[in-house]
């Protein structure tokens, strides 16, 4: 099964090399780094790592970076696209868990859920925004996911061909679920173990999760009114 790994990266020079090495060590060599207007050495590091690099000349947000990855997939037609965070919180070994339901043809979209894992070290301050986001998604789109903001997702060709996101910023992760419902995509979750190192916790992008989840409610409702 031809798998494309999309790694959105914004100022991730510290963790990117390790993330790419981990992916390659597990046999995932078909990698696209979407450098989202990074100010640091992210672009150079990605280019040296011998992977495909798509660079946004200005920062457009995580949703826009994922959309670029999906657009790249539509041009190259892999069987599956996996999105994988560049801050080092995911384990490449978890990818096979995501691919299993797709290989067995029981799902078109699989999300790696941090809340389904047995890892009890989940930081409480990360838990509340996730629950808020899950509830907002359920209320608006009628699909309950235990981890709407997870960065580890797998999309079969049937799914990524149909997914066109409108949101550029953090709220795109909820918009995904709207598309899943609208396009009648089969959705599954698998437990994953997040690695919460000091670095991935202090990362500004992660810290904004609470703020963005509050902004989200307003934003989603506004989009309905438009």
């Amino acid at each position: 099964m031809k798998t494309l790994i999309v790694v959105p990266a914004f100022n991730e020079e510290k963790s990117l090399t390790r993330v790419i090495k981990d992916l390659k060590a597990h046999g995932y060599g078909n990698i696209l780094v979407v450098n989202d207007g990074s100010q640091d050495k992210t672009k150079e590091i990605a280019e040296k790592s011998n992977v495909a690099v798509a660079t946004h000349v200005v920062n457009r947000g995580l949703g826009a970076a994922i959309s670029t990855g999906l657009a790249f997939a539509r041009e190259n037609n892999p069987d599956v696209v996996v999105t994988f965070d560049s801050d080092g919180q995911h384990k490449a070994e978890d990818i096979k868990k995501l691919l299993a339901p797709i290989t067995n043809n029981v799902a078109d979209v699989v999300v790696g859920s941090r809340l389904k894992s047995n890892n009890k070290n989940f930081p409480l301050r990360r838990l509340l925004p996730i629950l808020f986001s899950n509830l907002a998604t359920f209320g608006l789109y009628g699909l309950y996911s235990t981890d709407t903001t997870s960065g580890l997702r797998a999309f079969h060709r049937r799914a990524y061909q149909k997914i066109k996101l409108k949101s550029d910023r953090m709220e795109f992760s909820n918009e995904f679920f709207k598309v899943f419902v609208e396009q009648r995509l089969r959705y599954k979750e698998v437990p994953i173990d997040p690695i919460y190192t000091g670095y991935s916790l202090t990362n500004s992008k992660q810290g904004s999760e609470l703020f963005s989840s509050l902004k989200l409610g307003f934003k989603l409702i506004f989009d309905l009114l438009r």
């Binding site: 696209l32 979407v34 457009r60 041009e75």
Partner: peptide
């Protein structure tokens, strides 16, 4: 306008990947 900027940025990014490939 934001959406359009993203589309332009995406188009440029994807063309560059193709060229480097």
């Amino acid at each position: 306008t934001q959406k359009e900027i993203s589309e332009i940025v995406r188009e440029v990014a994807l063309r560059q990947v193709k060229n480097s490939a």
